[in-house]
Amino acid sequence: MSDTPLFELHQVSKSYEGRTVLAVEALDIRRGEILGIVGPSGAGKSTLLRLLNFLEPPDGGILKYRGHALQPGAVPLELRREVTTVFQRSALLSTTVRRNVEYGLRLRGERDSRAAIEKVLDRLGLTALAHASARTLSGGEAQRVALARAIVLHPTVLLLDEPTANLDPYNVGLIETVVAELNHEQECTVVLVTHNVFQAHRLAHRVALLLGGNIVEIADTPTFFESPCDPRTSAFVKGEMVY
């Protein structure tokens, strides 16, 4: 992990129908880190991920990626394709597992990808399901396919939006292991949005608490959990309701 920021956000805001859902004063996301973002429902976590994946432009402020201040709606395709997201709902195509995994590669015109696909399927325990229809998968299997089709692209940044919500411990463990390995082996920067503070504790190098669209506190993981500065962080990690 390096201290060089990959993303730099200054005064970034986003509103829907006149209601501000995100107002980030300042946030740097470092190259090669796993940044956990925790917070209650409606805190703006998913909105932040959509901005980081350039799926929506911010209404105000500056969003820099790799030092480039990006103009809303004019992000070059090659930069956009360095970042990908795994959402809470896997949203698979109604085809086979294999075709789902190779979808992003086909978009990029990569034809010679057989070995990469086999490797990713094996890594996520999906080899036996390669020719199964995505419609027949369990929730855990579907989410592993969603992760497989993201990591086969070798993203510079992997955004995870509650990737293990409602999954059984086996699938949670497998997904967490693959994410940690990906970060360690390929220096893939990971932003993990989760309600699960224990998961953030297990995986993240740094953790941020998002409340009402604002970042209340961001610190390295031991500090965040053991000696937070903000009383709301302290309350949140103890499982108390904070708004």
Binding site: L77, R80, R81, T84, T85, A91, L107, R149, A150
Partner: peptide, 18 residues
């Protein structure tokens, strides 16, 4: 079609047309 699918496709690098 699941409205989340389009967002997911864009997140995987699809252009609007794709």
């Amino acid at each position: 079609v699941d409205p989340n699918l389009r967002l997911q496709l864009r997140a995987l690098g699809a252009t609007r047309r794709q």
